[in-house]
Nucleic acid binder design. Structure first.
Lengths: 108, 108
DNA sequence: TTATTTACCTTGTAATGCAAGGTATTTGTT
DNA sequence: AACAAATACCTTGCATTACAAGGTAAATAA
């Protein structure tokens, strides 16, 4: 994955990081992201993304009964997903460094 | 601009920052970005983006003769562009903080 | 005069973010 | 029992983006 494509994939990486820590379901993720300071990631963004990541075998899912509502689809990381998360973190470091360099160099 | 749209706009902000510092032309920008650690931003990405930013009145351009080749289109920031750069930097700080929080929280 | 380098721009494609809408399940209320 | 409300999932269609690939033009060098 190039730096460029990473631009579009920051959310992907964040989801992987959250899923690695605890099994979560999509609806919950939308709320968690709010807590982390990302506002306005709608379900229309999150569900397609989760499905894409499953297709790419970065995550797996299992349905579990809810106490209040329909079944929840819980996601966990695969080994491939963990490896992708690792790569993402490296790319994020690089991007962060590059952007900060531009911003501090060029705007003193 | 929401956080989400900012994801797509990191390059925009970096261009604004570079242009603020020195008048540059598009072809040159592609090379400068390499130096800053962003590899593989092609002209097909940069020219349309510059034209979009001009349409949005964030930059202006003037043609100047080159010593070796066709005329160069030099870009400078407008006041609106400076203000947009300021906003971008704030959004970038927020995004950076959010992503880093997720990554350190969730992957200990 | 032909090739090379510099420099700009356009077209078409794939992927993204998202608003808007739709479906299904459980619990609580009337 | 009937209905509303909350939970939870998914789809559709649109605008935007990144970009490869190609095209144009100007200056210099061979």
């Amino acid at each position: 994955m190039s730096t460029t494509q990473m631009m579009k994939g920051i959310l992907d990486g964040c989801l992987l990081a959250i899923i690695k820590d605890t099994e979560v379901y999509g609806y919950e993720l939308a709320e968690k992201l709010e807590d982390y300071g990302f506002h306005s990631f709608s379900e229309g963004t999150i569900y397609p993304l989760l499905m894409r990541m499953q297709k790419e075998e970065l995550v797996t899912s299992t349905l579990k009964k809810s106490t209040a509502g329909p079944r929840r689809k819980y996601y966990s990381l695969t080994e491939k997903g963990e490896s992708e998360l690792q790569h993402f973190m490296e790319r994020w470091q690089t991007l962060q460094a590059s952007v900060n360099r531009v911003l501090s160099d060029e705007t003193k």
